[in-house]
Amino acid sequence: MSWVWPAAAARSSALLVGVGLALLGGTAHAAPCGRPDVDLTFPPDGATAVPSNAILAAHYGSPARYADEVVSLLDDGGRNIGVTLAYDDADSMLRATPDQPLAAGHFDLVWPGLRGVSGSGGVGRGRSVGFTVTSTVDATPPVFEGLSDIGWDLARDRDPCLDRLDDRFVFQLRVGQASDDSGSALLSLLVFETEDPAAPAQTEPSRVGVRAWPTDGKLEVRRPAKKAGQTCFAAVAQDLIGSVSGGGEREVCVKTQKPPFFDGCAVSVAGSTAPGASVSAWVAMLALAALRRGRAAHARTPRAV
């Protein structure tokens, strides 16, 4: 969870920004530090019209270590369906390819929790999903219009590993229409940063996220606010058999501005960003100002003779 500071307001008075930040502070982020929970599944829970040749996949939120954990796929008769498993370390994705095309009907699938690569991550949480397969076969690649619009904001997120606030550019992307044999709801959206002010020499687009298909056509991407400037994104859609759409040629770009955050006068040790320290500093400054103003008013008051 985090709070967002509108870009327009960020350009206004630094004093107001400082007061706002000192008073509001940041809130704890929900994601645990480095724990590889399953954060996305393809198909998602409750999906219908899943094609019979679908490749099932789960995405883990942090790098995980796969140690031959079992994936359980049961049909509606409770029979175990054989799958071939492969964990892609670069994608943090566990893929399960059924040994035979799935028969029409309901299936229950249990994705395992995997151990995190870092020692602090522990074992992540798995996920159970249910979905319905139809007899249709996904044969053609999806069609996607690409991204159509972009906006941005500034936010400060609390990092659960470092327990500190970090500036983030929050990009709101508008996603164009898409279609596929099995409908757009089963597609995954791959988002790429095609221009990054922090890496102007980089020519290859870098992937910044795999997302479930946004039903409302809106997508939010958070990037570190290291350097402001021209930032561009593009996206493609991928279906359950791995076919990729076009639409990636459409880039959306926006020019970000450097956050003029002002943390106030710290009365704690250097480097501390504790909001309490900033609040106490502001309270002390306001009290001092009020005291001086009171004394000045007292001095101006004519004395009774």
Partner: peptide, 11 residues
Amino acid sequence: FCVAGRLSECP
């Protein structure tokens, strides 16, 4: 993947 007229970097 091919985006923006060029191949993306390997993840």
